[in-house]
Amino acid sequence: MPLLNSLPDYVLTTKTDELINWMRKSSIWYMLFGLACCAIELMHTGGPRADIERFGATPRASARQSDLMIIAGTLTLKMALRTRLLYDQMPDPKYVISMGSCSNCGGLFQLAYSVCDGVDKVIPVDVYVPGCPPRPEALTEGLLKLQEKIMTERWLARAPGTNGEAA
């Protein structure tokens, strides 16, 4: 955030969009949507070593209280319908991180008859994190990339009448 030299220390000048986005990106609450093996790595990412809570991301159990959905694990066709329902239950603005190969593209289960090849067949995805399973450091990088994406959103310039999504 740019500071002008002549102002005292307790005055901050910045753009409104940057201030709003900085507050939003530092407090992304994710929904626990651990389906399979990546769920264990998601737990480890929230665990003591690669602590994701230092970035403000805390786990929530309910979709209604979260703004990020981390799809961790294989999406079967039986689960895909419920995934769509849970995504619709999240309030706007919402983001989706697809964690692991299985939710990116089906992973090593593309030969299976009951697996949905990739979660982007049912919901729109913002960040894809590759790996099988991705290390906690990889998932943290995915979250940081999402934070970069959030910083590019514009709030004051959007047309009136659109819902909470940024332009």
Binding site: L77, A80, C116
Partner: peptide
């Protein structure tokens, strides 16, 4: 396909 989700990638 199953319920509108295609099984082909």
């Amino acid at each position: 396909e199953y319920h509108g989700i295609s099984t082909v990638r």
